[in-house]
Design a protein around this nucleic acid. Sequence first.
DNA 1: CATTGACCTTGCCAGGGTGGCAAGGTCGAG
DNA 2: CTCGACCTTGCCACCCTGGCAAGGTCAATG
Lengths: 139, 139
Amino acid sequence: MNIGQAARHSGLTAKMIRYYETIGLLAPAGRGANGYRRYGDKDLHQLAFIKRARDMGFSLDEVSRLLALWQDRQRASADVKALAEAHIDDLERKIAELVGLRDTLRELVGHCQGDERPDCPILRGLESGCCAGDHGADD
Amino acid sequence: MNIGQAARHSGLTAKMIRYYETIGLLAPAGRGANGYRRYGDKDLHQLAFIKRARDMGFSLDEVSRLLALWQDRQRASADVKALAEAHIDDLERKIAELVGLRDTLRELVGHCQGDERPDCPILRGLESGCCAGDHGADD
DNA sequence: CATTGACCTTGCCAGGGTGGCAAGGTCGAG
DNA sequence: CTCGACCTTGCCACCCTGGCAAGGTCAATG
């Protein structure tokens, strides 16, 4: 199976697969006589794993560690759990940050008439920082 | 006032200010006889505006439009409001996506013993996609 | 057999937004 | 004069993906 088929089966793109290979996330694929990369069932399985891990929001670095654990038959599930929990914490932080931003912005928007006149509390808020208090949203 | 002072006053870095100038977000600053950029009160005001808009999560492109509206005395507040509301929608989408990821992950983590044994529902979930259903979290 | 079109290969450039580092000019104080 | 702090420009890095180019390969047509 060539890279195009592997891509369609896994949901990744050929570009991503090649990239993952160059950065060492994937072991170099076997090559046919023509130089094309060849993928077998085991490879497809791994690509699908990566795709799902990416869809769950894990960074490539985290995916790399997940892959290592996945392939380690001696792994402790606690290690996987720790990785996942750390990621959940990341997500929580980001969510809290975005919610803070949204609420601040909603507050400003709620005070704005939204008509054809130039007066606008949103701009005033950005100007003076009066309404946009500290919600710790400094990335 | 040189760029360093302007940076400290606005909360931006000198690097950012120069970058904003190169991409046209800021008009080229005036220069002293030595070639150093010079910033006045009006410039500081603008830099602070940008800083706050960035802190609110607006992209540089959105900041650019906000700046234009800010400086347009004929603006309609409706335009500002529309921009802000679009940004709120963006935030809502991102929040929903992250919450979906978090919940899926929490579900998996909740089933994982987290001990020294290798058996791990998290990895099984990533392997087969059994627990990570469609929560529309495909960016 | 020749051509076509789909596929593969590698490599480079782009983005957004910031940090880092280099090599040089300039200022003010010791 | 010298030293350190500051300024200047320019390039490279990150993360991850897309796009485009120039070329090789394959299978199926005419």
